[in-house]
Nucleic acid binder design. Structure first.
Lengths: 126, 126
DNA sequence: GTTTAGAAATTACAACTGTAAACGAAGTGG
DNA sequence: CCACTTCGTTTACAGTTGTAATTTCTAAAC
């Protein structure tokens, strides 16, 4: 129905802020981004907000002088779409190699290992 | 040292063929791609081969009339780079949520579950 | 040698991206 | 009221990507 708009690398940064703080003003988004990386320029962020609106990823409500941005696509569906695309592109669509790769190439705490083992157990008999 | 060149979506398709069949001729690549998706056009593939050469992802050896293409970056390091980038972009760099997402949103055979559980066990005491 | 078929190289072109500067409208402080 | 600040809107511009068509080479066949 609604083919989740493709969100680019930098656009993801913006979306993450909007998802977590919606509704937000442009300046709040800018502030949020600069917090992690001061090299962000306001104009750049404004451009990205606009593009995301054009793509249908964001909407906004005008309230007096203020504009409140909010997501039109959920983080969940965006994550799903991006993940699916990545899985396809890099691992040819095979989940197992993807999981093996990530598990093997990173360190996990015992707690994480346990949690994941539990998740897998849940999958086991289905 | 060598910052793995960024490989685009369609370029990945080409690289996969080269990785698996190196050294390959352009026509073999084209053939391989068409096998899975007949809508590929030869010129498109040639363009991609050229771009990949320019990016330093591929090299070739000229042997008479034939050009033999081969990868200059390994599949492994490319997968690693793409995975790292994806992990960062979509999951903010947190492995656990990524794994949880993929495990939860896909089906796994009992065999796969067992294998992954084994992998996790290996990680457990490190 | 001259033609020719098959491959590589060059050119094309619009959409998307990263990165901003410049412009314009609308309050804000005087 | 008027300059100034603050947002959002428009314009810019080069690099990347998807998708090819066109042109140029060149080894091979005459």
């Amino acid at each position: 129905m609604k083919p989740v708009p493709r969100i680019s690398e930098t656009e993801w940064e913006v979306m993450k802020i909007v998802w977590r703080q919606s509704p937000v003003s442009a300046s709040q988004v800018i502030e949020g981004l600069k917090e992690r990386d001061p090299s962000w320029h306001e104009q750049t962020v404004k451009t990205l907000l606009n593009r995301l609106i054009k793509k249908g990823a964001l909407g906004y409500r005008k309230e007096g002088r203020a504009y409140w941005y909010r997501p039109l696509v959920s983080e969940d569906e965006s994550v799903r779409a991006a993940s699916q695309s990545f899985l396809q592109r890099v691992f040819g669509g095979s989940l197992q190699p993807l999981l093996a790769h990530f598990v093997e190439s990173h360190n996990l705490s015992t707690k994480e290992v346990n949690e994941l083992t539990r998740l897998l157990k849940g999958k086991e008999r289905k």
